[in-house]
Amino acid sequence: MESTEQFFESLVARDFGRMRKALASDAQARFLLPRGLEEYSGAHAITQRVESWFGSAAEFELTSTSEAAIGLRQRRSWSFDVVREPGRREVIEQVAFFDVGAGGIERLDLVCSGFQPVPGAVASGTHVFDAGAMGCADGLAQEFRRRLGEVPVGGSLTVVVRDPAAKEDLPALARLLGQSVTSVEAHDDGRLAINVERIK
C-alpha cells in the first residue's frame, strides 16, 4: 500500500528517482498501450518508460484519481491534462494494478488510453508535431497523416524531426499526399522543422 502511494505521488510530482525506489529492483511491468503490449523488467527500465511519457511535458496536471484494494492487489487510476507541444492540450488516463512485496512493487499491470487530443483545444495557426526520433519504419507516416488530418484545409502543420531518414522522407511524404511543403528549416541542434500546408 505504501509503495503504491509512493509510486503515485512520485508520478504526480514527476520525481522519477523516487518512483524507482517504490519498485522492487527486479519488478516486472506490463503496459498495454494503444500501439500494443510492452513489457519491462527492473525498476530502472520501468521508470525510464514512464518518464518517456510524461517527463518532458510542459504542463502536467492531475484531474482525477481513484484507488481500491482488489483482493491482494492494489488498483490505482489517474487522469492527467497534458501539454507536450505548444498549443496542443491532451488528456490521458491509465489504470494500474500493483502487486506489492517486501521490497516494494513487484508487478505492475497498466492499461493506457493513449494521449487523446482535447477537441477545440488546438489554437488555430499553431499546429506543431514534434516527431522526436520517429523514422521511416516506426509509424511516422501514419502519425503524420493523422496529425495533418486534424489541421483544417488551408492551415499549416510544422513537423519537427530528428531521425535522418525522416528528414528526407517527410517532405516526400507530404508531396505524395498531395500537400504543399512551404518551408524547411534546419535547427542548430540537428533537428529539422518542415512546414506543410494542407491544401486538400
Binding site: 521511416c136 519504419a137 535522418p164 531518414a165 522522407d169 516526400a172 511524404l173 505524395l176
Partner: peptide, 28 residues
C-alpha cells in the same frame, strides 16, 4: 533509414555522398 537505425548508424558516420532516406523518398 529503417536499416541504419537498428545498426546504430547515424549521420555522423556517413561517408561523402551518402544520405539516410526513408521509403517515402524512394517511392516519390
Amino acid at each position: 533509414g529503417a536499416c541504419t537505425k537498428p545498426r546504430g548508424i547515424t549521420e555522423e558516420h556517413l561517408a561523402d555522398g551518402v544520405t539516410i532516406v526513408g521509403a517515402a523518398k524512394v517511392v516519390e
